[in-house]
Nucleic acid binder design. Structure first.
Lengths: 243, 243
DNA sequence: GGTGTTAATTTGTCCGGACATATTTATGGC
DNA sequence: GCCATAAATATGTCCGGACAAATTAACACC
């Protein structure tokens, strides 16, 4: 017997994964019952359930009381959106213009801490801006960008921006970004925001909160975007990443 | 005493969630040990571990052998799960239930063609369903699923579904899906839909249109999901894929 | 033949116990 | 004080059993 370093339930889980991948248990069919697996591998039901729980978390099987455990995927598949261009994620797209309204240093209160999930009391550079297709055109987005403030050069430059922000993209250490978390919700626009976006009072809006983090899961940048709901549509495409 | 319908371990999990939210267990501190929780709530260690497992999945705590269970977040990280697999996209698994209201054969008109970007005049199976956390609970999603209709076996089965849709997973050729396109927008709920979702009349809603395509970019399935905007937040995490 | 009821099957919940392994704390020796 | 060792602590793994709840299959009935 080889080194039994791996716990038994993990061994069973991997074994089942292999069997499924090999086609011994086709998608749409039921796996052996827990009792059968107990007998076959001489393990307790607890261990079997622990193994099946893993496959369930991997989204390879669905379990239904009274029915059984059905295979729904031949392997753990993932749709990894490849962030090819960070600029894309930040929506610095070419045909949109960002007009900076204000850039100030603020201290995060509970409200902001809750919004972008940061620590209250920390200092941030807050850039309030509008996005529009043409210069001077009707804005299609109200954008609030937050970055941790310090005494560094970048902070100073950010506070100094007045019109365009293009030049600062590279300063933001965007290439260090490893994870982008995005939360989307629908809200009713405030009177002020509706006015800015030139839409009727109390129309609906799409709120997109993005948090950009580095490999250590440290928050680098956060952006809150507010779009008019009527004529704005957020779309994305996820491709299956073969492994 | 209210209805003890919920299993014990879920009750404990919710209780601990509340205690953490209330501040009784601050972020960064250790929860009581498993044994202490056993004694306190008069339950077995198995039940305690089942409850803690939930909090761990919610990313509210981290567990370390020999050390203990530490609180790392005051609330669930995200209300909705992350998009990382096909099953996630279809929202099959997890603890949400899909209740099929109707399943009919329709001919795509211009309106539908525009909505899911298909060819008008084609026949589709239209499944109208509600999604809720618990069976019979308030739905958090109105779901409309469309699939090309033919004279094949799958079409017949889809038209026959009345309650659960689990058994049809394999029929839908989900493992052939290569690309998922997603469009998100904010709208005002119709009176009827607001009523179904149990929210005030003309509140805001989040509309998510998903199109599932195979490697040849052929539309396999389309789903239109409508969520209440007030208490629903769509969240996703994108990880940068090195290489 | 369809229909409602019962029985069998299968996963879900919950309990008890035992030992392993990782971590922290206490202990001694220097 | 520092460091290695031992003891205590806490979670991880695994077993056994029992009953509940959901589903499916079998069956009697009209």
């Amino acid at each position: 017997m080889p080194t039994n370093k791996q716990p038994r339930y993990l061994q069973i889980a991997n074994l089942l994964r292999q069997l499924i991948a090999k086609g011994s248990h086709a998608v749409g069919t039921l796996l052996p019952t827990e009792q059968q697996l107990c007998d076959r591998y001489r393990i307790s039901r607890h261990t079997v359930r622990e193994a099946l729980r893993i496959l369930e978390q991997d989204q390879m099987v669905v379990r239904r009381q009274g029915s059984g455990t059905m295979v729904i995927a031949p392997a753990r598949r993932s749709f990894n959106h490849n962030i090819s261009s960070v600029a894309d994620m930040l929506q610095y797209a070419t045909n949109s213009r960002l007009l900076v309204v204000s850039s100030t240093r603020i201290r995060a209160d509970d409200s902001l801490a809750n919004l972008i999930d940061c620590k209250a009391g920390t200092d941030y550079v807050h850039i309030h801006a509008l996005r529009s297709v043409e210069k001077g055109g009707t804005p299609f987005c109200i954008s609030d960008i937050y970055r941790v403030a310090g005494n560094d050069e970048i902070t100073k430059r950010l506070l100094a921006v007045s019109d365009t922000i293009y030049a600062l993209i590279d300063e933001l250490a965007l290439d260090q970004i490893s994870t982008v978390e995005q939360k989307i919700s629908a809200t009713t626009l405030t009177a002020a925001n509706a006015n800015v976006l030139r839409v009727p009072k109390s129309s609906v809006g799409l709120k997109i909160v993005r948090r950009y983090m580095d490999a250590n899961n440290q928050l680098i940048l956060a952006a809150v975007n507010l779009h008019p709901g009527a004529n704005f549509q957020y779309s994305m495409t996820l491709k299956h990443h073969k492994k």
